[in-house]
Computed example of a mutant assay.
Amino acid sequence: MDRPRNPDAFMRTLKRLAAFYLALFLAAFQFDAAALAQDQIGGGADDDVFFVDVERNQPPGSTPGDATPVRGDGDGEPRYDGYRSEPACGSRLGVRIPECEQQWFCPPGQMYWHILGRETATGRWVTIGGQCTPTGEEPTLPEATPAEITPAIVLRALRRLGLPEAHAQTQPEGTTLVNFDTIFFADAEIQTRDVTLLGRAVTIEAEPVEFTWHHGDGTSRTTTEPGAPYPARDITHRYASASDEPLAPRVDVTYRARFQVEGGPWRPISETVTIEGPTGSLEVTEATPVLTR
């Protein structure tokens, strides 16, 4: 094997490589991804030694030994509704490393903890700060603030969950006559949904309060009742002319909702939700006179 032409240069290269891989090792072994984004790790080499520099940057709004709840954007809801801590030392396999108990950015005899907060809006756990504590002691966490469930949050959940559509039923069914009182009605009931929002139990009650009937001939009508089958005649429509093709009547139902959080008082949601119904099929024909004896 040929000897390097410049042994000193060769050794300097080896030292730089060793510093580089040591820095990578420290970054991967001791810091999680969220904490790593807040640290600066570098390295270098001299003729006789190599070194690794680690600069610990604190997250905005937090200091070692303290982590405080961070409020949202003026909407009255906490940005974080829960807190927990994780030791910065220890392997991903759950094995504690004794050599890591005392860290260079904490005083001797102390260890560093990541403080994590659960985001109210997403439910995700994110690193928000850190604390140095005496070895064997856990950090002091902020007091969790229960998330406020607002009508806007419940309305978004209700739209995501969806409400049942109503079918426009007619009598006569399938075929009716010109200038004849065709009866319209629909089945629509109060709907109840039990959901968990921001970690809290919420009951939503949606009541149908408005029905918009589309007759299929270009006309429509809005009522506050769903109608009823014959002999009731609560909702009727007269078609002025026969149709060449079957018409497609439908009914759109508008719901007004209210909600309660963990069995508390009912709170209204001012905005309504309208669900468009499926189209049916209805032929409109003219009666043909027939002579009889």
Rank of each mutant, 00 (worst) to 15 (best):
H114D: 03
G280S: 08
T127S: 09
P4S: 13
E276M: 05
E99C: 15
A9F: 13
G174V: 08
L116Y: 00
N6L: 06
G227N: 05
G42L: 06
I235P: 06
G44I: 14
T170K: 01
T13I: 03
F29G: 02
A201K: 13
P60Q: 14
A206Y: 08
T127W: 07
E99G: 13
T120H: 01
E189S: 15
F50V: 02
D194H: 11
R3I: 08
R293K: 06
Q260S: 15
F211M: 03
I204H: 12
A240S: 03
E271I: 10
P60W: 12
T120D: 01
F29S: 07
Y80H: 15
R12A: 14
T274R: 10
R221E: 07
T219F: 11
F185V: 00
T288K: 14
A27V: 03
E262T: 14
V178E: 04
P249G: 15
A19T: 15
P98E: 04
R160E: 13
H237T: 07
C100V: 13
A88D: 10
V126E: 05
R267S: 09
P246V: 15
E86T: 14
A23Q: 00
H237I: 04
F29D: 06
D66T: 07
R238S: 05
F25V: 07
G42A: 12
G263R: 13
P78D: 11
E77W: 11
Q260A: 14
R92I: 13
V126P: 04
W104D: 08
P226N: 08
Q58V: 04
V126H: 06
E99Q: 14
D8Q: 15
E86Y: 06
H167L: 10
D194I: 09
E165W: 00
R221W: 08
I269K: 12
D244E: 13
C106S: 02
I128T: 11
A35D: 11
R5H: 11
L14F: 11
R193W: 02
P265G: 05
V49P: 01
E173M: 09
A152S: 14
C89Y: 00
G74F: 12
D8P: 13
E207H: 11
F31I: 07
P172Q: 09
T182C: 07
G123W: 07
P87C: 00
D217M: 04
V154E: 05
F211Q: 01
G199Q: 00
E119D: 06
A257D: 08
R84F: 02
V95C: 01
P107I: 10
D46E: 12
G162W: 02
G227K: 01
P164S: 02
L93Y: 13
G43K: 04
T120N: 01
E143A: 08
R12G: 15
T236E: 04
A287D: 10
C106E: 01
V49N: 08
L158P: 00
P226H: 05
G218P: 08
H214G: 04
D39E: 12
T288M: 13
